[in-house]
């Protein structure tokens, strides 16, 4: 029997809290209505301003918005169809969020939006205005003290190539907020939306369990 998703899925939130286009269904709708062809090869993005003023496909124009990322207000030009992963990586310089598939399969791009882990490859940037976005770069304290989950990974030498690591860590941090004392089995379910191709699952789980333990201690302390 599949365990029920242990964090609140976005549809369960009160209506007024639901960013309109955060679900995958709405995400796709959002991209389609923007009038941009969705290539089968990848989600594509305009990163330059060299073409400004020229007549291009309808609805591509960028718009200046304010995002709350890692506790800072960041002003950024975004396109309608721009994903949060792209904005973070290519506009805000936050490259710790990785793109492994760009299609909501691997979880490498997971960030927290209002403490809920979501695939940032499948969240349109303009839908998270006014919501708190947290990336791997925002986890450690200003004085450099690591988050207890990051420390758990250090303590246990978790992960190999670590391309999946920031996604796993963000998912775990989000999961622990509602499930602070998981078993190995439950935490495995909690992070099962994240893929590790080094297949270092056993050591990863040990490291994340250590992170859970560190988190409980830090709350108590």
């Amino acid at each position: 029997m599949a365990e029920k998703a242990s964090f609140k899925v976005i549809e369960d939130l009160p209506k007024e809290d639901v960013p309109k286009a955060v679900s995958r269904r709405n995400f796709i709708k959002g991209v389609i209505t923007s009038g941009v062809a969705v290539s089968s090869a990848s989600y594509l993005f305009r990163a330059s301003s060299l073409l400004q003023g020229q007549q291009l496909a309808a609805g591509i124009g960028e718009r200046l918005i304010t995002l709350n990322v890692n506790g800072q207000q960041r002003r950024v030009d975004v396109m309608k169809q721009e994903t949060l992963a792209w904005t973070l990586r290519y506009k805000l310089g936050l490259t710790g969020t990785k793109l492994g598939c760009d299609r909501a399969e691997c979880g490498s791009c997971t960030v927290l939006i209002e403490d809920i882990p979501l695939y940032s490859c499948s969240v349109l940037t303009h839908t998270v205005r006014g919501r708190k976005v947290m990336t791997i770069e925002g986890l450690a304290s200003a004085d450099g003290t690591l988050h207890p989950v990051q420390q758990g990974v250090i303590d246990e030498q978790g992960f190999q190539c670590a391309f999946c690591m920031s996604g796993f860590i963000m998912t775990t941090v989000g999961y622990l907020k509602t499930n602070p004392n998981p078993t190995r089995q439950k935490l495995a379910h909690g992070v099962s939306g994240n893929l590790c191709r080094c297949q270092d699952y056993d050591k990863i789980l040990t490291a994340l369990m250590r992170g859970a333990d560190n988190t409980r201690r830090s709350v108590l302390g």
């Binding site: 936050l94 791997i136 670590a162």
Partner: peptide, 12 residues
């Protein structure tokens, strides 16, 4: 560098 997201892979 890996746990803080500052490790740079090619696309970074």
């Amino acid at each position: 560098a890996k746990v803080t997201g500052s490790a740079k892979y090619a696309e970074d």
